[in-house]
């Protein structure tokens, strides 16, 4: 399998980030607290704020998972960020341009 590979160009694997147990557990605890918080807030009537609070907490949790558990914070690869941003951007296009129709209809 390796007969074509150029051994002289073989470099050792670059230093990958190895997450420490302490920081991983810390992130995990924050995530659990957020879960408890968002479930608790749901029982309080905040009017339209319920939606905003719930989605803000969810986004905060998602960002924590992406940055720390998925190692995006430590990667030297800019492309990973680009892929994530593109996916979110195109999802945003789908949602907003579809909703642009529903929210401006003159008939129901």
């Amino acid at each position: 399998m390796t007969e074509h590979s150029n051994a002289s160009q073989n470099t050792a694997t670059p230093h990958e980030h190895i997450s420490s147990i302490g920081s991983s557990v810390a992130i995990w605890i924050v995530l659990l607290i957020c879960t408890a918080l968002t479930a608790g807030v749901a029982f309080i009537d905040l009017g339209p704020l319920n939606t905003i609070v719930a989605l803000t907490i969810a986004t905060f949790k998602a960002i924590l998972v992406v940055l720390f558990f998925m190692h995006v914070k430590y990667t030297h690869e800019k492309l990973t960020g680009l892929v994530i941003v593109s996916a979110i951007f195109f999802l945003f296009l789908l949602l907003t341009l579809s909703m642009a129709d529903y929210t401006t209809r003159l008939w129901h």
Partner: peptide, 22 residues
């Protein structure tokens, strides 16, 4: 190309404002 899809739906009953944008 991702921003234009509703021009297939101009007579299907989408909102006139979003039709203008599309």
């Amino acid at each position: 190309g991702f921003l234009v899809w509703a021009h297939h739906m101009f007579v299907a009953g989408i909102s006139v404002y979003s039709a203008l944008v599309f």
